[in-house]
């Protein structure tokens, strides 16, 4: 049976996944609220609908980061070896990349959460 989780692929793109999700989430939240506030009268959407929509998007972004963290953890060998993984071998390079990806995923997770906090308290559009 084919696994849902992708096969282990050694590419730098896995390293960037979580920060890219963080950047996209940041942009969508800012641009989403800005467009809504500019077009609120013609959109027939309540402020809370936008808030809930972006809340759901935040959960999706967090899920993607958790998936990225899981893949990184797998690439790191589930933490069986300790850093710094600085030997000139293929195995150490793979473990180093996995560990770096895991740390970046953690940072991105916290950043997305911090970005979501103002969306809970923001009250209305200022005109």
């Amino acid at each position: 049976m084919k696994s849902v989780i992708p096969r282990e692929v050694e590419t730098l793109w896995t390293l960037f996944t979580a920060p890219v999700v963080w950047a996209v989430h940041f942009l969508v939240c800012y641009v989403g609220f800005a467009v809504y506030c500019a077009k609120a009268l013609s959109l027939h959407l309540s402020f809370d609908a936008v808030r809930i929509g972006l809340g759901v998007f935040t959960l999706l972004a967090l899920a993607m980061i958790v998936l990225s963290a899981y893949l990184a953890w797998r690439q790191w060998g589930y933490g069986t070896g300790d850093p710094p993984h600085d030997a000139p071998t293929r195995q150490d390079r793979k473990h180093f990349q996995g560990f770096a990806t895991l740390l970046l995923s953690g940072l991105s997770f916290i950043a997305v959460l911090y970005m979501a906090i103002p969306m809970i308290f923001i009250a209305e559009c200022q005109r």
């Binding site: 959460l113 911090y114 906090i117 103002p118 809970i120 308290f121 923001i122 009250a123």
Partner: peptide, 12 residues
């Protein structure tokens, strides 16, 4: 996180 939440909670 707590300080940020408190600050943005105060903003309105």
């Amino acid at each position: 996180g707590a300080l940020l939440s408190y600050a943005v909670w105060l903003m309105p």
